[in-house]
């Protein structure tokens, strides 16, 4: 197990957002987290990344407990995330946004940057190349010098993922990566995600409401409702599960 959650409970005031939940994600899997709005999916991400501290339970990453670590430390251990509500660095260029992801790989000190010593140039050049490469993968290299906030919504989502990838993660948490994309763009994105997964040897935990995307991407899904598990298994089985249909999918045929 790359990621293991044991008996996680999360309360906000009196409200129980996650209720004694346990599950595990295996290396190399694409694991889907689905469920109605407000079921606790994003909250679970926030617990894994250290943004929230769970009321009860343990999170283990590669068998080590994460509890108590600051979010930035957790990133350095190899867990990166994207935000559901797109949170790019708005005043900065797309390239700079991705370069921020490389922050901890730029191996020069404050004084080396002030004095412009060789290592500064060495790493800046290398990381700029790496960043451009990632942008090319997502088909947004032409926006490298554009201000991140002036991209369209769908392209901003791609920058979010590119930036997370730059932190060199082993586990990538994607919160609704396909939101704001049309079926063709979603299809392209699936391909990109599959490619980077193989190439970087990633494990992926993703939240998505686009069932076609989930079905096509995920090895396994967990369905949450009011913070509790109502289904775990193959996506193709989830789609026909009675409880899942009742709580989450409904009988509308729109998607």
């Amino acid at each position: 197990m790359v990621l293991e959650l044991q008996n996680i409970t999360m309360q906000f005031g009196g409200v129980v957002a996650i209720d004694n939940l346990s599950f595990g994600v295996e290396a190399g899997q694409i694991y889907g987290l689905i469920g109605p709005n407000g079921a606790g999916k994003t909250t679970l991400f926030n617990i894994v990344t250290g943004n929230y501290i769970q009321t009860k339970g343990k999170v283990k990453f590669n068998h080590e407990e994460l509890s108590g670590l600051k979010p930035n430390m957790i990133v350095q251990r190899g867990i990166a995330r994207t935000f559901q509500n797109i949170r790019l660095f708005k005043s900065m260029s797309v390239l700079d946004n991705v370069l921020i992801g490389f922050h901890n790989q730029a191996n020069y000190t404050y004084f080396e940057s002030i004095l412009r010593l060789p290592r500064y140039f060495l790493y800046e050049k290398k990381l700029k190349n790496d960043a451009m490469e990632i942008l090319e993968r997502f088909g947004i290299a032409k926006y490298a010098n554009t201000n991140a906030s002036s991209l369209s919504y769908g392209n901003q989502r791609k920058v979010e993922i590119a930036r997370a990838l730059a932190t060199n993660p082993k586990l990538l948490l994607l919160d609704e990566p396909a939101a704001g994309m049309n079926p063709n763009e979603t299809e392209d994105l699936s391909q990109i995600i599959k490619n980077i997964k193989d190439e970087y040897g990633l494990t992926i935990l993703l939240i998505e409401h686009d069932m076609k995307f989930v079905n096509n991407m995920c090895d396994k899904v967990l369905v949450l409702d009011y913070g509790e598990e109502i289904f775990e298994g193959k996506p193709s089985e989830a789609i026909v599960d009675e409880k899942v249909v009742a709580a989450y999918l409904g009988d509308f045929k729109h998607a």
């Binding site: 704001g180 409401h209 989450y248 409904g250 009988d251 509308f252």
Partner: peptide, 16 residues
């Protein structure tokens, strides 16, 4: 994009 981020069931309701 009103359906953005909505569960499939709610998407259906919103379109209705």
């Amino acid at each position: 994009e009103p359906s953005l981020g909505l569960a499939p069931k709610i998407v259906g309701e919103v379109f209705e």
